Simulated scan of single mutants.
Amino acid sequence: MPRKSGETPSYRVTSAGVNPTEDRAHRMKMYFIAMTLRLACVLSLFWVTGWWLVFPIVGAIVLPWFAVMVGNAVAYGGEETVAAPDPLELSPGDTAEPETPHEPEAASELLIVDVDPVRRSSTPPPSAHQASEEETA
């Protein structure tokens, strides 16, 4: 989606989808609210009388199902495809290496590293603090 010729394309961050942590927190909050309402329905069964008793009974039966359905409804955010850049491809003209006159040949250099290996199982060498105490004593 270049704006002007020569500019790099821009991609929308909003097409990336829903943050799983925020989605989980929202689902947990909705589950908690539904189960709190269910608890209120069950407790209200002790003082509600008459035909009003139907509402707390229906709430106590339906709210657990609703809470589980809301708690398991993961928001995928897949309504929109993720905007991703096209993969780069090499054309036959791109395989030639650029000329760099200032760079020496890699084959003419030889690098030798001569370091004693450090074994993890061996005892650690004395630290600089211990060595300075031994010299002063």
Rank of each mutant, 00 (worst) to 15 (best):
S91I: 06
L110I: 08
L110Y: 07
F55I: 10
L111A: 08
L88M: 14
V74H: 06
Y31K: 13
L43M: 10
V42H: 00
M1E: 14
V18L: 01
H26Y: 11
S132V: 01
V82I: 13
A96T: 04
P2W: 04
W52T: 05
T49N: 07
A106F: 04
V54F: 08
I33H: 07
L37K: 03
A34F: 10
L43T: 07
T100L: 14
M35F: 02
E79T: 15
P87A: 10
D23R: 00
P2E: 14
R12I: 00
E103G: 02
P104G: 06
T49S: 12
G78S: 12
R119G: 01
P20K: 04
M69R: 15
P85Q: 03
E80R: 15
A67P: 02
E99N: 09
E22Y: 07
G17D: 00
G78C: 10
L63M: 09
T123H: 03
V118T: 12
T36N: 15
M1G: 13
T8Y: 11
G59L: 03
S127L: 07
L53C: 04
M69I: 09
P92L: 10
V13K: 14
P124H: 03
M30H: 07
Q130F: 06
H102N: 13
L110D: 10
A96Q: 10
E134H: 02
E133Y: 09
V115G: 02
T36G: 15
A25D: 12
A75T: 01
A131C: 04
V68G: 04
V74A: 07
H26W: 05
K29N: 13
P117C: 05
R12F: 05
S15W: 06
V118S: 08
T136K: 09
W52F: 08
W65M: 13
A40Q: 13
S122R: 00
I61R: 04
P85E: 03
E7A: 08
T36K: 14
G71D: 06
R12S: 08
V13R: 12
P85K: 06
W52M: 06
Y11F: 15
G50P: 00
E105Y: 02
E80W: 13
L88S: 12
S122G: 05
D94P: 00
G17T: 03
H129P: 00
K29V: 02
S127E: 05
E135M: 00
M30L: 15
E79I: 13
E103D: 09
N19Y: 04
V42I: 14
L45S: 13
S91R: 15
A40T: 11
T123A: 11
A16N: 10
A96W: 02
R3V: 08
T14C: 07
E79G: 15
A67G: 03
P92C: 08
A83P: 01
K4E: 12
P56R: 02
L39W: 09
R27V: 01
P20S: 10
P92G: 06
D86T: 07
E134A: 11
D23L: 01
L111Y: 08
V18Q: 01
A73R: 13
G50E: 03
A84R: 14
T21N: 10
L111W: 07
I57K: 00
S127M: 04
S132W: 03
S121Y: 07
V74W: 14
T81Y: 08
A107L: 09
V118W: 04
